[in-house]
Simulated scan of single mutants.
Amino acid sequence: MGVMQQQKEHQRVELTGIERLNLRVSNMINHPVAQIQRWVTIHRLDTDGEREWEEVMGLLSETDGIDMIFNDDESVTLKWEASTDEDRPVEVCESVEEAAPF
């Protein structure tokens, strides 16, 4: 193993608690099954700090179109409506130019 590779391994960047929680919640919301059913339940893990949990839940509560249900087991269920055609991203299709028939 070269010296450069060893240095890269020692320079791993650790995510903060808020970044880990944001990434986990984002992945759960964007999961294909959650997108089909339009709801997901987020469980608070032992590694989720109080401050991080409150900040992420606060951001979610401010997001338009998301309904939050706080469950008895300290989990949170998020529900949302299907987006309209106007809200969906536009797919760009490249046009194929055909040779003129003349």
Results as ranks from 00 to 15, higher is better:
75 S>N: 03
20 R>W: 04
97 E>Q: 12
29 I>D: 05
10 H>I: 09
15 L>F: 12
82 A>D: 15
71 N>E: 12
76 V>L: 02
41 T>V: 08
89 P>K: 02
94 E>T: 12
74 E>S: 10
19 E>V: 03
8 K>A: 15
88 R>W: 03
33 V>S: 10
94 E>P: 00
51 R>Y: 05
64 D>T: 08
72 D>A: 10
3 V>N: 09
89 P>E: 09
22 N>R: 14
62 E>H: 13
97 E>L: 15
57 M>L: 14
23 L>R: 13
70 F>S: 11
82 A>Q: 15
12 R>W: 07
95 S>C: 06
35 Q>K: 14
19 E>L: 03
92 V>H: 02
11 Q>F: 13
95 S>G: 00
36 I>H: 02
16 T>Y: 03
37 Q>K: 12
67 D>L: 13
92 V>M: 01
53 W>V: 01
64 D>G: 07
24 R>T: 10
98 E>L: 15
14 E>D: 12
14 E>T: 10
16 T>S: 15
38 R>M: 11
67 D>A: 11
75 S>E: 02
32 P>L: 08
26 S>C: 07
69 I>W: 00
2 G>H: 06
88 R>D: 07
34 A>W: 01
59 L>P: 02
64 D>F: 06
71 N>M: 10
32 P>K: 08
55 E>Q: 09
72 D>I: 02
64 D>W: 04
85 D>G: 11
32 P>R: 08
4 M>Y: 12
52 E>H: 06
83 S>R: 07
77 T>E: 06
48 D>Q: 06
99 A>T: 12
6 Q>S: 15
11 Q>Y: 12
90 V>F: 04
49 G>F: 03
47 T>F: 00
92 V>F: 00
79 K>Q: 02
48 D>W: 02
60 L>P: 02
2 G>N: 12
34 A>R: 04
11 Q>L: 14
46 D>R: 04
52 E>P: 02
91 E>V: 15
94 E>I: 13
67 D>W: 03
2 G>I: 06
31 H>D: 15
30 N>Q: 13
78 L>V: 04
58 G>F: 06
6 Q>A: 15
30 N>R: 13
38 R>L: 12
26 S>D: 06
59 L>N: 13
33 V>L: 07
80 W>G: 01
69 I>F: 02
9 E>P: 00
11 Q>M: 14
6 Q>C: 08
25 V>E: 06
2 G>Q: 04
74 E>L: 10
19 E>A: 11
89 P>H: 01
62 E>A: 13
67 D>Y: 07
82 A>R: 14
26 S>G: 09
20 R>L: 13
60 L>T: 08
10 H>S: 12
73 D>K: 04
25 V>A: 10
60 L>A: 09
25 V>R: 03
17 G>T: 08
14 E>S: 09
12 R>C: 05
19 E>W: 05
22 N>T: 12
36 I>V: 13
77 T>Q: 07
10 H>E: 11
2 G>M: 05
43 H>K: 06
95 S>N: 07
86 E>V: 14
60 L>F: 08
89 P>L: 05
4 M>F: 11
57 M>Q: 05
70 F>D: 08
48 D>N: 05
46 D>L: 08
99 A>Y: 10
50 E>Q: 07
45 L>Y: 01
5 Q>K: 11
99 A>Q: 09
41 T>H: 00
2 G>R: 05
28 M>N: 01
39 W>V: 04
88 R>Y: 01
6 Q>V: 12
14 E>P: 00
56 V>F: 04
9 E>D: 07
41 T>R: 05
68 M>C: 07
86 E>C: 05
84 T>L: 01
